[in-house]
C-alpha cells in the first residue's frame, strides 16, 4: 500500500491550520508554538522581524535568541534558544498585576491593556522567562542624531490598534507600560502567521492551534523529544522546544 507523503510547504500548512482555527470561536483555539532547536541556526531573523513588526523601541525586546557556548576552545559548540513569550497557561505575570491590566485571553495569549497598566513592573519581576520589557521612553535616534528618524516614530499595530510613540510625549502609552510578545495577535486576526514564524530561515518555528489535532503545531508538540522551559514552576508554557 502506498504511503501518503506530506509534500506541502510547512508555511502553507501552518497557514491552513491558522485559517481553520480562525473559523472556530475564540475560546476553542489555543495558540502555541513549537521551536525545533536542531533547525535553529541562531540568525536572529526572528528577533529582527519582531522588532520591525512591532516597532519596538530600544530596551523593549519581545523576542531574543539566547546563545550558549559549550565546551572549551578548541572543542566548542554553540546552542541557540529563541525566546518569545511563553504564553503560559498559568502566567505568574498575570496573577501579580494589581489592576488587572494584563490577562490571558481565552485563546491562550497573554495580553496587556496599555490604557490600564500603571507601570509598576511587578509583572517584570514575576516572569520567570524575562519575557516582559518596560518601555522607558527610549528612541534609537532621539537625542543621538539631529533629527528623529521616521522608523523611530512609526506606529505599531499591536492589538489591532495604532500606537504611536513620540519623543515629546513620554507620558503617553505604551511608554511607561510593561510590554510583551503577543504572538502577533494583530496579524493572526488578519489570517497571517506571527512575524517570527514567517521569517525563520531554517523552518525551525511552527505555530498553530494546539487544540486542533490536525495542526502541525499540535502534532509536533506531542513529540517525545519536546521540552518546555522551567516546567517545574507549573506555569505550563505554550511554547515547546524540540531537542
Amino acid at each position: 500500500m502506498p504511503v501518503e507523503v506530506e509534500t506541502k510547504s510547512m508555511t502553507i500548512r501552518m497557514l491552513e491550520d491558522l485559517h481553520r482555527a480562525l473559523q472556530k470561536p475564540l475560546e476553542e483555539r489555543r495558540w502555541g508554538m513549537v521551536i525545533d532547536l536542531r533547525k535553529c541556526v541562531g540568525c536572529n531573523a526572528c528577533t529582527v522581524a519582531c522588532k520591525a513588526e512591532n516597532n519596538t523601541p530600544p530596551g523593549v525586546a519581545y523576542h531574543v535568541v539566547i546563545e550558549e557556548e559549550i565546551g572549551q576552545y578548541p572543542n566548542v559548540a554553540r546552542r541557540f534558544l529563541p525566546r518569545p513569550c511563553m504564553q503560559c497557561e498559568h502566567p505568574p505575570c498575570v496573577k501579580v498585576c494589581p489592576v488587572n491590566a494584563t490577562y490571558r485571553r481565552p485563546d491562550g495569549i497573554v495580553v496587556i491593556d496599555y490604557d490600564v497598566c500603571i507601570g509598576c513592573r511587578y509583572c517584570l519581576t514575576a516572569c520567570p522567562y524575562g519575557a516582559r520589557s518596560f518601555d522607558f521612553g527610549d528612541f534609537y535616534t532621539a537625542g543621538h542624531t539631529p533629527e528623529v528618524a521616521a522608523y523611530d516614530t512609526n506606529p505599531s499595530f499591536e492589538y489591532g490598534r495604532l500606537h504611536q510613540r513620540l519623543p515629546g510625549r513620554l507620558n503617553q502609552s505604551p511608554i511607561g507600560n510593561a510590554r510583551k510578545c503577543t504572538f502577533c495577535i494583530h496579524r493572526l486576526e488578519k489570517g497571517m502567521l506571527p512575524a517570527c514564524i514567517t521569517t525563520c530561515l531554517g523552518g525551525a518555528r511552527i505555530f498553530g492551534d494546539l487544540n486542533d489535532p490536525k495542526s502541525l503545531a499540535a502534532q509536533m508538540a506531542a513529540s517525545p523529544r519536546v521540552v518546555r522551559l522551567k516546567e517545574e514552576l507549573g506555569t505550563e508554557p505554550s511554547v515547546y522546544y524540540l531537542l
Partner: peptide, 16 residues
C-alpha cells in the same frame, strides 16, 4: 541572575 542563563548576552540596549 538573569531569568534564563545567557539572556544577558542576547540583546544589549539602553534600559536592557
Amino acid at each position: 541572575l538573569p531569568e534564563l542563563p545567557g539572556l544577558e548576552y542576547a540583546l544589549v540596549e539602553p534600559h536592557l
